[in-house]
Every structure is written in C-alpha cells, then in structure tokens.
Design a protein around this nucleic acid. Structure first.
Length: 559
DNA sequence: ACAGACCGCGCC
DNA sequence: AAAGGGCGCGGTCTGT
C-alpha cells in the first residue's frame, strides 16, 4: 500500500473529530414497548442508563450522538414521526470506510456482518433495503441477520467499540474520525433532504416543456416539436427515414450521404457540413429533456410542490453521493427556473469554486500553487504566474493534470506546470503510478480507493486507465470530504434559525430555503462553514475556499 | 419478453 | 476544442 499524501501535517492540534461534529454517544435500544435508548460510555460500553425513545428525541442535547446500525434504515422512520437527530455514528457507512481502508472493498457492512467477522462466524450478506421486511422496526435490520439469541443492543455496542479501536489504529485517527463524523452527518442530511424536498413549481416546469416541445402528449407519443424536427432530418437526408434516437441509424444516414463520421456525439456532428446536422442537434437536445425530465418525470418525482431525489450517501467510490431515480444530481440548467422559493422565502445558493485544484494545492503543499490558491480565481493566478496571463491554457493544463490527460492541448501546459509546481504534479503522478502498479491510494482523511480485481493485469490500457482513476481519486475524494464537512457544519448551524432548511446538495453546491428575513444569516453560515471545513481538514493552510453565493427567488437566477 | 451491453448526454 | 476523472438515465441493439 502506498500513501499519496507526503509532507503530513499534524491536524490533531486543530481538533478534527473533537470539534463541533463530535458529542456524547447515546445508543438506541430496541424494545417491544415502542423503544428506549441505552446510553454508552465514550469507549462504547453500555452504562446501563436507559431513556424512552421519544424522551431521548425531544430532550437530546445538540452534542448527543446517536449510534445506530444504518441511517438508511433508522432515520426515515424517525423523520416521518417528526423526530430529528443532531449527530450520529453510522455503523454501516463506517464499516465500509474501515473495510476499504484495509483494502477489503465491497464486503458486507451491516452490523450483523461486522459482528460475525468479529466473532469469526459466517458473514451474512447485506440485506437490500428494498427487500427488507414490510414493516421494519428501528432495529429489524440488526436483529434479523444476527444469529438467534444474540442481543442486538450488545451487538451494536460491540461493533461500535470495535470500530473505535480500528479508527484509533489508522495512520491518522484524528483525520479518520472526522471522516466518519462527516460521512455520518452527511447521511442524516441526505435523508432529511429527501423528506424535505426541493421546492419545484410544476406549473413553471410544464410551461417550459410546452414552450420547448409543444403541447403535452400521452406517454410514448412524440411531442409536436420532435415530430417536426424528425421530418426536417428526413428531408435533409433526401427522404431517407432516419431514427434520430438510433446512433447506428444516424451513422448510416451520414454514410449514405457521403459523410464519414466516427460517432454521432454532438461535438462530432457540429463539425460536419450537412443540412441534417442542425435539426439533428436540436432534436437530440429536446429529446433528452423530454425523456429525462419531461411530463412523465414530473408525474413520478414531483409531489406537493417538491422534487424529492433519493440521495445515496457514500454511493460513489470517491465519497460523492449518488441518487436513485429521478436524476437528482443532474437537474438541467434549462429547467432550473422551476426551482422556486415559496412565498416569503428565498433560496440561498452557494457553490465552492475551483474546489479540486484548491484541494490539490492544500494536499501537496506546493508553495506556488498554494499561493495561487489564495486568489479568488485560481486559474487566473496560475496563468498570471506561469502562462503569461493565458487563463484558458492554465485551466486546460490543471484539469488535464488532475484527470490524467497526456496529449492534445494539455501537453504543453502540463510541461510548464511540472516545472513550476513540482510538488503538486509529483503528488498526482505518484498517485497515478501507484494505481498503474495495482496499489491503493487514499484521500486526505483516509478514504481509500477500491483494490484491483483478481483478473486485473498490469498491462497497457487497463493499467493506464487505473492510473487515471487513482490520480483523480485523491483529488475528487478529498474534495468530496471537504464538501461533506462543509455540509455537516452548515447543517448543524442552520438549526439556530427558524424554518431554514437544506434542500439540495450536489458535490460542491448547497441550496438553503429560508424565510426572506433570515437570508443574511444563512449567507453568513455558509461562508463560516466553508472556512470551518478548510480548518477542520487542513488546520492552518494558506489555501482559500471561496464561495459563489446568490440569494434568489429562483434557482435559474443563481450564479 | 426480458436482460444486459452500448451509446450519448445531462450534471459535477 | 473535444483528450483525460466521477456519476444516472433512457434510448437502441443484441443475445437468450
């Protein structure tokens, strides 16, 4: 195993894992009478104290931390019953992080599985949440898979204590604790946001669809505008009936028209001189809106004025979230006019600009790059310093370095960067080499990339592809943990405001819906949170994490 | 009829 | 301008 972060800095003095994200653990305990919670000591052993569940929910201090099997199983029910939890330790997410740290990716991560591994017993498969019992109780997922006779409370306590030991045995327990706290807080936020939903005007959305596509049609029937464009495409191909949704058919049509193209990607088509290109590009754009975010989508995903994406925290290997259905992280720009604050409210939209290059600067501690990362526009600062002010070249070079591009336009800027920012480029190239050799790389806080499969061979394209993946992983995964930490801090501070709700999170962007009179406080919380996230991850670093913040009535007006 | 691969494009 | 990282989704196409 190869570490990629050299020049380690001790961040413990600045207190990751000991600050706002940590608290006194409380353990939930199942009971036939509707539930009690059992208290845990700091090392995970039960103290014997018990409190009724509803009392615990209403009387919990903000620093109370709930230790439970799986936020996905426990929290939606609590939220539906009006409960809300400040902090938690999610045993399943933490188990996945710890297994990954040891290079044991994809093993079952449930409490039952962890408990069984702890006792050298056969490990049960994880239960798909979709296949869980019809009326799950808070602890059903724990109880059902544990061997008969094993007390679920003891199992949770034992796994929790074991995880604390394993965290303490990592290379930097302070960092890993912060990762666990942020991952767990993120899971709370994810299920809260699914319950809350993003304010979505079905009327505005429908009006936009009609403007773009024509009147609504029944399912399976192409709207008027698509029919027209399809006819124009046929005409341009001199009557040849062409299915614009079929890349193979479009390719054949161009071949018949004497135009040899290697694919039907829109940027390839744009270079082709043929009358079918224009209607084809228009068709593809609109057909995409119709298929992915049309009337059927609205019917399925928008209810009571809210779009409710189902977030999957930890759904991406880099620690980014995924969504399940509805394409929640891909709301097209042309439809963002439908995201509207309700009466008397505003949306505060904040996104962290140029996050990945800034994290590269912080990770590598490259002096020149760190200086550039103090600027509001980091690409411009790099350009001024090293590219004679040519911002486009600076950006292409930096992105190419982080994504593993070697040729094309990026080649020359890359050589400049290697000369001027050697520590930053070395970090990336070391990560790539580790990946090509089949090794593991980690994020700043210790999230670890998946190992190679059994059938992996250290040859040509496969090795280079893995090198690009691990090269990008160190940056993308660290960006994801910065953003998660930001989210966690903002979430906890927003509880000080009445009726301010987090409604959207997408990789490096947060949207808060709040009463108009609270807007300035929300803005302050977002900025303070970004500052705090940088401090928690890196202690004192010259790197800044500037935000673009807009206070708007409509998402389309942000930015 | 259904499953899975591939394609292309939306987002970051 | 179009090479390189991560996704979800809906379309077609191919194989069973």
């Amino acid at each position: 195993m190869t570490r990629t972060s050299s020049n380690r800095r001790d961040v413990r003095t600045s207190g990751p894992g000991r600050g706002r994200l940590q608290g006194v653990p409380v353990l939930l305990v199942p009971a036939a009478d509707g539930g009690t919670v059992q208290h845990l000591a700091g090392n995970g052993t039960p103290t014997g104290d018990r409190t009724p569940l509803d009392t615990a929910l209403t009387a919990a201090r903000p620093e109370t931390r709930w230790v439970w099997a799986d936020t996905a199983q426990c929290y939606p029910q609590l939220l539906a019953a009006g409960g809300r939890v400040g902090r938690c330790h999610d045993l399943a997410l933490t188990e996945a992080l710890l297994l990954g740290y040891d290079g044991r990716w994809g093993r079952p991560r449930s409490v039952a599985a962890a408990w069984s591994r702890l006792h050298d017993l056969p490990v049960p498969d994880d239960v798909d949440p979709g296949e869980a019992t019809a009326e799950p109780t808070l602890f059903e997922p724990v109880r059902s898979a544990l061997p008969a006779g094993v007390d679920p409370v003891s199992a949770v306590a034992a796994v929790y204590a074991d995880q604390l030991r394993r965290i303490a045995a990592t290379e930097d327990p302070g960092r890993f604790s912060l990762l666990v706290a942020a991952e767990s807080a993120g899971a709370l936020a994810a299920f809260e946001m699914t319950a809350t939903g993003l304010p979505w005007s079905a009327e505005v959305h429908a009006a936009k669809l009609t403007e773009l596509l024509g009147a609504r049609t029944s399912a399976g029937v192409r709207p008027a505008r698509l029919v027209e464009l399809s006819a124009l495409i046929d005409a341009a191909f001199e009557g040849r009936r062409t299915n614009p949704d079929s890349p193979a058919d479009v390719l054949a049509a161009f071949t018949a028209a004497g135009r040899r193209i290697e694919s039907t990607r829109s940027w390839v088509l744009r270079k082709v001189d043929h009358p079918a290109v224009e209607p084809l590009l228009a068709y593809k754009k609109l057909a995409r809106i119709h298929a992915a975010n049309g009337w059927a989508w609205q019917e399925r995903w928008v209810r009571e004025g809210r779009f409710r994406p189902e977030y999957v925290p930890g759904g991406v290997v880099s620690g980014r979230w995924a969504t399940r259905g509805g394409g929640g992280l891909q709301i097209p720009k042309v439809l963002r006019g439908a995201v509207r604050a309700t009466l008397g409210h505003i949306l505060v939209v904040a996104d962290a600009g140029q996050l990945e290059p800034r994290l590269l600067a912080a990770l590598s501690e490259d002096p020149g790059m760190a200086t550039a990362a103090q600027a509001e526009d980091m690409y411009a600062a790099i350009a001024a310093r090293s590219f004679g002010g040519d911002r486009a070249r600076a950006k292409v070079g930096l992105l190419g370095a982080m994504y593993g591009q070697v040729g094309g336009q990026a080649a020359a800027p890359l050589a400049v960067l290697r000369q001027e920012y050697p520590a930053a480029l070395r970090l990336l190239e070391e990560a790539a080499r580790t990946g090509e050799d089949g090794g593991l790389v980690r994020s700043h806080l210790g999230r670890t990339c998946p190992p190679v499969g059994d059938d992996w061979v250290r040859t040509g394209p496969a090795a280079r592809a893995r090198g690009r993946f691990t090269r990008n992983f160190v940056v993308q995964a660290t960006a994801a943990e910065w953003a998660l930490t930001w989210l966690a801090v903002v979430r906890s501070q927003l509880t000080t405001l009445d009726a301010a709700e987090l409604v959207f999170f997408a990789h490096d962007e947060l949207v808060v819906h709040a009463p108009a009179e609270a807007s300035e406080q929300v803005v302050r919380i977002l900025y303070d949170g970004a500052l705090e996230a940088g401090r928690l991850l890196f202690g004192s670093t010259p790197v800044r994490f500037p935000l673009d913040v807009s206070t708007v009535g409509c998402y389309a007006d942000a930015g």
